[in-house]
Amino acid sequence: MATIFEPARLGPLTLRNRTIKAATFEGRTPKGLVTDELIEFHRAMAAGGVGMTTVAYCAVAPEGRTERRQIHMRPEAVPGLTRLTEAVHAEGAAIAAQVGHAGPVADARSNRAPALSASRRLSPLTGQFIQGVSPEDITRVIGAHADAAELAADSGFDSVELHFGHNYLISSFLSPRLNRRRDGWGGALPARARLAREVAEAVRTRVGTRVAVTAKLNMDDGVRKGLNPDDSIEAARLLEADGHLDALELTAGSSFLNPMYLFHGKPPVKDFAAAFPQPLRTGLRVFGRAFLRHYPYEPLYLLPLARRFREALTMPLILLGGVTDRASMDTAMNEGFEFVAMGRALLMEPDLIARIQKDDTTTSQCIHCNRCMPTIYSGTRCVLT
């Protein structure tokens, strides 16, 4: 059985332990470029003991950002990205870039470019129509993922995480609810998984073994007629058989349709409303609970779903969701997961890993109130510290 604080192989690299700071958009790139604040955010995670920290979100194209204040991977970003990776490496940790295309989750008005999805549909987030991607768009997006991964490797990143979750573009292809195509990219699961597989292949072909390549994959969209666990397991088996990925990080939920299915805990409706101007503020106060649903929080809340994937796959898996202490980490190791990923608890206490390693009775102070979620618009942080 693996132990959480032993060095571990992830593809071509070795991490100092089996903990990963999950990708949580930092809200520290107002001009779409690395800032000193972003560097300090990840330096603190590295100094706090994680094996690897993940930068989110690095869009592969300008229209692939959820909104314009995000990094999109281009030569102009390289100097800042290089400073960022050097700062993390100086603290002894590895660093990953989460690369992807936001697809239907993108704010077209903010990006000043049309949002894209597997199929044309009305966005519940903006009230605008989202374009269905053309075959030419698909070719461009596949190449853009490879370009972004290469740029990440050139900037000193140790790993790239491909975003196949949360109903971002590739996830929208996996979802039968969002993918109504009648060509070679829609219909049965193998066709809906084609884009994910071709992106993984293109990225691996481009970067080889220079960096590890992982993917964040939805186990369940958490919406009616969305991607379900049976289809997701089939997609994961196809990705495993292709052999282009070094690990899968298992996630759930839809930023587009049901975000709280990932987070669990109390929905921060009032805090989200306060982050927006009128009339959106009133709209969120009145209708926010229909979108931000309540799923009770409990430790390791995604483990029951993740067990099915562990039983079906042999490739390394990263367990996310309710990992906050040594006991939950040990449970993950006992269940056969190779790594754990942590988000909210490290926002509150960036040094939590080091303190757990020193004293395995250490308890996270995070109460999973989710009030950190709306702070993505002003600098992601715990509001209780």
Rank of each mutant, 00 (worst) to 15 (best):
residue 261 Y to F: 14
residue 272 F to N: 01
residue 331 T to A: 11
residue 323 V to I: 15
residue 326 R to Y: 15
residue 262 L to I: 12
residue 339 F to Q: 05
residue 321 G to F: 06
residue 278 Q to A: 14
residue 241 A to H: 12
residue 282 T to M: 11
residue 273 A to K: 03
residue 255 S to D: 14
residue 258 N to W: 02
residue 305 L to E: 06
residue 241 A to M: 11
residue 264 H to L: 03
residue 312 A to G: 08
residue 249 E to K: 06
residue 339 F to T: 07
residue 291 F to T: 07
residue 334 N to F: 06
residue 316 P to G: 02
residue 281 R to K: 13
residue 246 D to L: 00
residue 308 R to P: 00
residue 284 L to C: 08
residue 274 A to S: 12
residue 329 M to V: 11
residue 292 L to Q: 06
residue 322 G to R: 01
residue 252 A to R: 10
residue 266 K to T: 10
residue 285 R to E: 08
residue 265 G to P: 09
residue 300 L to H: 03
residue 255 S to Y: 12
residue 296 P to W: 07
residue 237 R to S: 05
residue 289 R to Q: 13
residue 241 A to G: 13
residue 320 L to V: 10
residue 305 L to H: 10
residue 338 E to W: 04
residue 284 L to S: 07
residue 298 E to C: 11
residue 328 S to R: 12
residue 305 L to W: 09
residue 271 D to S: 15
residue 338 E to N: 11
residue 282 T to A: 13
residue 265 G to R: 02
residue 275 A to D: 03
residue 249 E to H: 08
residue 250 L to T: 00
residue 245 L to H: 03
residue 325 D to T: 08
residue 302 L to A: 03
residue 265 G to W: 04
residue 341 A to H: 04
residue 310 R to W: 05
residue 247 A to F: 10
residue 281 R to Y: 05
residue 312 A to K: 05
residue 260 M to Y: 03
residue 307 R to F: 07
residue 312 A to C: 09
residue 327 A to W: 12
residue 294 H to V: 03
residue 284 L to M: 15
residue 250 L to E: 00
residue 331 T to D: 08
residue 314 T to K: 15
residue 340 V to M: 05
residue 329 M to D: 03
residue 304 P to I: 11
residue 256 F to Y: 15
residue 342 M to P: 01
residue 283 G to C: 02
residue 326 R to T: 09
residue 289 R to C: 08
residue 249 E to F: 02
residue 239 L to V: 09
residue 328 S to D: 11
residue 342 M to K: 02
residue 295 Y to M: 08
residue 252 A to N: 09
residue 274 A to D: 13
residue 291 F to D: 04
residue 257 L to A: 10
residue 334 N to Y: 09
residue 249 E to M: 08
residue 241 A to L: 12
residue 265 G to Q: 05
residue 298 E to A: 15
residue 272 F to K: 01
residue 296 P to T: 06
residue 299 P to M: 10
residue 279 P to K: 11
residue 322 G to A: 05
